[in-house]
Nucleic acid binder design. Structure first.
Length: 273
DNA sequence: GTCCAGGCATGCA
DNA sequence: TGCATGCATGGA
């Protein structure tokens, strides 16, 4: 990947396996919005970013070199060889067809807190409504980053709310989960930074101990927020996909089950309605 | 009107 | 690694 600065923007060349719509709007992150010029705007880690595909393997990012190297490079996992991973998981015939149809899905390295809160909201909910709730949460309780964009509110901020305040932005019965999570995190009873240092088994057990977090929400948080690429979340769509794997997951997924899962998830939502 | 969505806690057997 | 049920909300 070659990085050049131009007119206050960054140009990335040689970026392989990166489709903006498939990566930013595939149900792993909920804050990215496509703009009228087909660029994508979003916020993460307290920063705003606009990114646009401007050529073959070429992208233009409205950000600084400093923020790119400190944050976005890691967020998009640009230093991981996704082509090699795709080649490996394509040893499975169903994944091979999904990768050819939807080539360019990457797993984002999101902030653990944002991922955990987002996937608690996601339970028994649909993606369109999840995005609306999270936008209201950020616009109401986040700090302003730039015109129209707010940070994801931290635990201290949310611990000042009551359950009714969460319900007022449309989270429904999940309000009591968020209230307790915010309180316990702000008080230091839940330490996401410590969970991030654990092995997968311990990290999953720690997340499952949180009120409102079950197996599915824990797996999504671990995959999208704690960088455990071997997690394979089973939601209602993936349970339908599992009919194609009566003998369990193929060996070629090993270590990258979560990436295979995201291709299969996208395929299922489009073909198994 | 009914059904469903990136499910979970609770109570019961 | 039991199973049934209630739960908030809004789009299809």
């Amino acid at each position: 990947m070659i990085i050049t600065e131009k007119d206050g923007c960054l140009i990335l060349d040689g970026v392989k396996c990166f489709d903006l719509a498939l990566t930013l709007d595939c149900g792993q992150a909920f804050r990215w919005e496509e703009q009228s010029d087909s660029s994508w705007s979003g916020a993460a880690m307290g920063k705003f970013l606009n990114i646009k595909k401007v050529g073959n393997e070429r992208f233009m990012l409205k950000t600084t070199a400093e923020d790119f190297n400190n944050l976005w490079r890691h967020y998009f996992d640009f230093d991981r060889d996704y082509d090699a991973i795709c080649k490996k998981i394509k040893e499975d015939s169903l994944v091979a067809s999904t990768v050819e149809q939807y080539y360019g899905i990457r797993i984002l390295k999101q902030d653990p807190w944002e991922a955990l809160v987002s996937f608690i909201i996601s339970q028994q909910n649909n993606i369109k409504r999840i995005k609306g709730i999270i936008k209201r949460l950020c616009n109401t309780y986040g700090e302003k980053i730039c015109d129209g964009w707010y940070s994801f509110p931290d635990a201290e901020t949310l611990s000042a709310l009551e359950t009714e305040d969460f319900e007022a932005i449309g989270v429904g019965y999940r309000g009591k989960y968020l209230k307790k999570l915010a309180d316990d995190t702000a008080a230091g009873k839940i330490r996401l930074d410590e969970i991030k240092k654990m092995n997968l088994g311990d990290a999953k057990a720690a997340l499952l101990a949180i009120y409102g977090v079950g197996v599915k929400v824990a797996d999504c948080a671990l995959l999208f927020g704690f960088q455990f690429l071997s997690c394979f979340p089973l939601d209602v769509w993936m349970k339908r996909v599992m009919a194609y794997y009566p003998d369990g997951l193929p060996e070629c997924f090993k270590g990258y089950e979560g990436i295979a899962q995201q291709y299969l998830f996208h395929w299922a939502r489009n073909h198994l309605k």
